[in-house]
């Protein structure tokens, strides 16, 4: 079924492209950070998509039918566990980056990367 690949992988590629474009073109540090967060979302979406299996349900074996044949009825749980980890780390890293941006604003008075002279080389 080709449309799954087109839609689901296509969405993560599109998100990645938008985030990368923001990082390359935008001059405002907070917008660059937003681009990074978009790329992170794209990677998480891609990992979840890899784990999906047609016609199967979430790996929470809450009824008898599911408990009897788990692997025939539920999707791959490993990518979901990985993404659970990645989301939390992403939040922490975004908060740390924001604090560094606040510091930069304090010392330079601007968020524009073109105007921060120390970054030039």
């Amino acid at each position: 079924m080709i449309y799954g690949q087109v839609i689901f992988y296509g969405a993560s590629v599109a998100l990645f492209a938008i985030g990368l474009y923001a990082i390359l073109v935008k001059r405002n540090l907070i917008k660059i950070l937003l681009g990074l967060s978009l790329i992170e979302g794209a990677v998480n979406l891609f990992l979840i998509n890899i784990g999906y299996i047609w016609g199967k349900t979430a790996p929470i074996l809450s009824n008898k039918e599911l408990l009897a044949h788990p692997s025939a009825k539920a999707v791959d749980p490993v990518p979901q566990a990985l993404v659970l980890t990645a989301i939390v780390i992403g939040v922490a890293v975004t908060a740390l980056a924001l604090s560094i941006i606040m510091r930069i604003y304090e010392t330079h008075g601007t968020l524009n990367v073109d105007k921060i002279k120390e970054l030039r080389w």
Binding site: M1, Q5, F8, G10, F16, G51, S71, V78
Partner: peptide, 24 residues
């Protein structure tokens, strides 16, 4: 390039053995 690479990954089919083990 990403799309060309992802096109080789089938969507919606079981891929890992370890996931099956964990479920079972």
């Amino acid at each position: 390039f990403l799309s060309v690479t992802f096109a080789k990954i089938p969507f919606g089919y079981p891929k890992t053995v370890v996931g099956k083990y964990y479920l079972d």
